[in-house]
């Protein structure tokens, strides 16, 4: 009896395995469509993850990732004990948190203003103009920023017209450089980021506004009690996604605008990793990168979980 049930069970798993294999064979056409994407993910995304091992190894180019000797947490000790780490982490946090404070509310305000604009043509013209910067690379945007805010550029000309005596060197001073980062990230992102809010605003039932008007609510009251509550779940979702990238700081943007005079405050985790790659200090750079990836993953998952608890999963991302 005992033996019988055992053999029965094992035949069941065999049958299950066979049926799973069979269902792949039956759907071979699906597999043909599916496999190229899977192979790409394995070859480029997952295979790259093995390289993270060198954060715990003394990586030697000739021996490769697997044959290089293990060193445990040595690189992390060097990293956390060195003077680069606090500076780079500080810069990353300062830049991305100030971007969040300045850059996060702007698209919401723009969306609310556009939502109040009754002139359709005017509205769509402004939208078209504000999305424009999003379509160009940071090489382009950085180059344009360098020109517009250059020593003899038009912005300094305006300041001169307003009575300033000396020109400001916007890219040669740490504080001004961070202002430049904020200005350019608002410029490139304000229109594009407002789209999601406009999309959820367009879903509001018009009769809600009409009812509010009849009750005597003005435009401001309507915005406060109808528009803003409507986009609240979207705001939360975007905030979660932003939290996940708090250790990013914006490599592309900084990389295309910074110079040696502002390294002290503009060198972020990713620019640091890039320079380790350039100087072939692979293990140390990977340790820094791994630190960033792990912290980001934990941040995204925990913020997502918290939002799920508070909002009944309405605005959670996963």
């Amino acid at each position: 009896m005992d033996i019988m049930s055992k053999s029965k069970r094992s035949s069941k798993t065999v049958r299950y395995k066979r049926s799973l294999g069979k269902s792949y064979i039956d759907n071979w056409q699906l597999l043909v469509l599916f496999l190229p994407g899977l192979i790409t993910l394995i070859l480029f995304s997952y295979a790259s993850m093995f390289g993270l091992l060198i954060a715990f190894k003394d990586y030697r180019i000739m021996e490769g990732v697997f044959a290089s000797p293990w060193v445990g947490f040595e690189h992390f000790h060097t990293l956390f004990g060195g003077k680069d780490f606090p500076r780079v982490l500080r810069n990353t946090l300062v830049i991305s948190i100030s971007k969040l404070i300045v850059g996060f509310p702007m698209p919401i305000i723009l969306a609310l203003l556009l939502n109040e604009m009754r002139n359709k043509l005017y509205k769509s013209t402004i939208q078209t103009l504000s999305y424009l910067p999003h379509f160009f690379s940071w090489v382009t945007l950085g180059g344009i920023m360098l020109n517009v805010f250059s020593y003899n550029g038009p912005f300094n000309s305006i300041l001169k017209m307003l009575g300033m005596n000396t020109s400001i060197d916007f890219f040669g001073n740490n504080a001004w450089f961070i202002v430049m980062l904020l200005v350019s990230s608002v410029w490139s992102g304000i229109g594009w980021s407002s789209i999601v809010y406009l999309a959820s605003l367009s879903a509001v039932d018009e009769s809600l506004y009409e009812a509010a008007m009849i009750d005597g609510a003005g435009r401001w009251k309507q915005t406060l009690h109808i528009s803003i509550p409507t986009i609240m779940p979207t705001i939360t979702t975007v905030l979660i996604l932003n939290m996940g990238s708090i250790l990013n700081g914006g490599f592309d943007q900084i990389f295309n605008m910074y110079n040696a005079t502002v390294y002290e405050w503009s060198d972020i985790i990713d620019t640091y990793v890039y320079r380790q790659l350039e100087s072939m200090d692979y293990s140390l750079g990977t340790a820094m990168g791994l630190f960033k990836s792990v912290v980001s993953l934990i941040l995204v998952l925990s913020v997502n979980k918290i939002t799920k608890k508070i909002n009944d999963s309405e605005s959670a991302v996963f």
Binding site: Y46, G289, V300
Partner: peptide, 14 residues
């Protein structure tokens, strides 16, 4: 792969 990746240097080595 959206949540976690190897990062610049491991990707380069790959």
């Amino acid at each position: 792969t959206m949540l976690f990746n190897g990062g610049t240097i491991p990707t380069y080595l790959n």
